[in-house]
């Protein structure tokens, strides 16, 4: 604690004791400690859990979720929420097959997918900033519209294969390391740089933490918010391509459940729905926890249904933990 003496001289804050420091450390890295605990416990309980093939398997599942969570984090940081990500993923994946399947021109596919993601993000962002629609409803509406367009376009039953390049990115490995993991690392590094090192990131945190402050210091909060939704849309589109490449075939439900999973992962990772608080590393840790727990359920031979039950418990417990710590 700091204080001021009666004559206004600064009083140096007492050095925190070691017990305090340990507590602060534990509090700050609680989420990482939790992941470590899950991994260690998993390794002890299920021998196959830490095997190379299982780790690779988990990584492959982690990547698409990780990419979406990064975008979701941008949006949640500005007090938003993006329910349209799963719909964007599926639409991007469906679009990827629309260019003549295996013979498709990869850059064209890529550009189309990103275009779709950016457009949806733009609509979400405009609804939120211009019309002052609550993010929940705005992204819910675009999710539904997009789903309808996709169904109508594909007549309800898309079929087809993704171009080989996406198969490689989605499922291939390079010296044992999945390509898509490298892909995630690049996206995560770019996202973290944007959030934590750039002026844009600073504006984003101020806007999310206190929109009135942002306005008063001359930050164009609407533009920053809009950008966050576009980032989320674009990353969702990319995640859709990666996931489609991983699975190999495309249906209307690529990415189903990712909208809620990505929110769960971000919240578990300490990104506050009230805005202005959270990091890319935290959100990715949250995603990793979800993937590890889901995998562990299978490795322990528990019924698959236990996955979603555990997911439900984890989000409530994690959110309670953050709320309690804030008090």
């Amino acid at each position: 604690m700091t204080g001021t003496s009666p004559i206004g001289m600064a009083v140096p804050a007492p050095r925190p004791g070691s017990a305090d420091r340990i507590r602060a450390f534990a509090s700050r890295y609680a989420i990482l400690l939790f992941l470590a605990a899950v991994v260690v416990a998993g390794g002890l309980a299920a021998p196959g859990f830490l095997s190379g093939s299982n780790l690779t398997n988990m990584l492959m599942q982690f990547v698409p979720l990780g990419i979406v969570v990064i975008g979701q984090t941008f949006v949640i940081l500005v007090r938003g929420l993006d329910l349209s990500v799963a719909s964007v993923m599926a639409t991007a994946a469906v679009a990827a097959t629309a260019f003549g399947g295996v013979n498709a021109d990869a850059p064209a596919v890529f550009a189309t997918a990103i275009g779709i993601g950016a457009a949806v993000g733009l609509v979400n962002g405009l609804l939120v900033t211009k019309r002052n629609v609550s993010p929940f409803l705005a992204t819910l509406a675009t999710m539904i519209v997009l789903q309808g367009i996709r169904f109508a376009w594909t007549q309800g039953a898309p079929s087809g294969n993704v171009p080989p390049i996406f198969r490689t990115i989605g499922a291939g490995t390079f010296n044992g390391i999945p390509y898509n993991v490298l892909f995630l690392l690049v996206v995560a590094a770019a996202g973290a740089a944007a959030l934590h090192l750039s002026g844009f990131g600073r504006r984003l945190y101020i806007t999310g933490g206190n929109p009135l402050t942002a306005h008063l210091v001359g930050i164009r909060a609407a533009r920053v918010t809009l950008a966050a939704y576009v980032v989320s849309g674009v990353l969702a589109a990319i995640a859709g391509l990666v996931l489609a490449g991983f699975v190999g075939v495309v249906d209307n439900f690529v990415g189903r459940g990712f909208e809620l999973d990505s929110i769960v992962a971000a919240v578990v990772g300490g990104v506050a729905l009230s805005g202005g608080k959270g990091t890319i590393a935290g959100a990715l840790t949250g995603a990793a926890i979800l993937v590890a727990i889901s995998n562990l359920v299978v490795m322990l031979g528990l019924p698959v249904q236990a996955q979603i039950i555990l997911k439900g418990i984890v989000i409530i417990v994690a959110a309670s933990f953050y709320v309690a710590r804030r008090r």
């Binding site: 600073r202 933490g209 206190n210 402050t213 210091v217 001359g218 202005g276």
Partner: peptide, 22 residues
């Protein structure tokens, strides 16, 4: 409610009005 970004640190609050300077 209006002035400070309460979740951020002293440096970020001091620099907030002149971000372009950095």
């Amino acid at each position: 409610g209006q002035g400070l970004a309460m979740l951020l640190d002293v440096a970020a609050n001091v620099s907030a009005s002149t971000l372009n300077e950095f």
